[in-house]
């Protein structure tokens, strides 16, 4: 689903954010990307989301070479990817329900089915009772879970997550990981950026370690 070949990213100021990255994530595969802050995790996610353009190498997502992606194609590319953002990226003037509804609304989903899907997604992250509340009234952990519900509501083929457990206590973190595993089991590819090493250790998945924009380790363990 994600094929990365000799990928590099240099920002306008000459700083190399990523250098010579090579890996591949198949259908139904879950991988972690770790590394200290500034190692290039966020840049990698931005490149996959087509927020930034690669400086070199190939990045193929869902069979689409992102080097050849036109401006018009970007929204449709993003719709196939569910993203959990570190800073949640929720709309403060919309309720929890409306926030989760957003991806379905954008793709013109039939209203009744959309509502059903939103409730299913909110139920999964344990926030069904808070659907009418505005994000500002929620705790950081709850906001994070709204972000997760929004990322999965569109049934994307790829889920990206940037520090999805950053604000969560260990119990909730484990819950979130369980949700991710469920998606993995139905064929969704997941790439999770995290520095929560203790959590990663308990899960026994492939871990790609970045350091100063280079891949220093790719522990390709698959538990299948």
């Amino acid at each position: 689903m994600i094929k990365i070949n000799k990928l590099s990213k240099r920002y306008g100021d000459g700083q190399d954010a990523l250098t010579n990255i090579n890996f591949e994530i198949g259908k139904g595969e879950m991988s972690f990307v770790t590394g200290h802050s500034g190692a290039g995790k966020s840049t990698l996610l931005k490149l996959i989301l087509a927020i930034e353009k690669p400086s070199g190498g190939d990045l193929i997502v869902n069979g689409l070479n992102l080097n050849k992606l036109s401006r018009r194609e970007i929204p449709y590319h993003r719709r196939k990817i569910g993203t959990v953002f570190q800073d949640h990226q929720l709309l403060t003037d919309r309720t929890v329900f409306e926030n989760v509804l957003l991806p379905l609304e954008i793709s013109g989903f039939p209203v009744e089915d959309a509502k059903r899907r939103v409730r299913a997604a909110l139920d999964k992250v344990g926030l069904l009772k808070k659907e009418k509340i505005f994000p500002a009234a929620l705790s950081g952990g709850e906001q994070q879970r709204v972000g997760i519900a929004r990322a999965v509501v569109n049934r994307p083929s790829i889920i990206l997550a940037d520090e999805p457990t950053g604000n969560l206590d260990p119990n909730l973190s484990a819950e979130v990981m369980k949700v991710f595993e469920q998606f993995k089991n139905v064929g969704v590819s997941l790439l999770v950026a995290s520095h929560d090493t203790s959590l990663i250790k308990t899960l026994n998945y492939r871990v790609i370690h970045l350091d100063h924009g280079r891949m220093v380790n790719d522990i390709g363990i698959s538990n299948e």
Binding site: R78, F85, Q89, P103, I106
Partner: peptide
Amino acid sequence: EIQVIKLVGGTDIY
């Protein structure tokens, strides 16, 4: 708001 909508795949027309 526009940034968020763009992140989740909203087109310019939307």
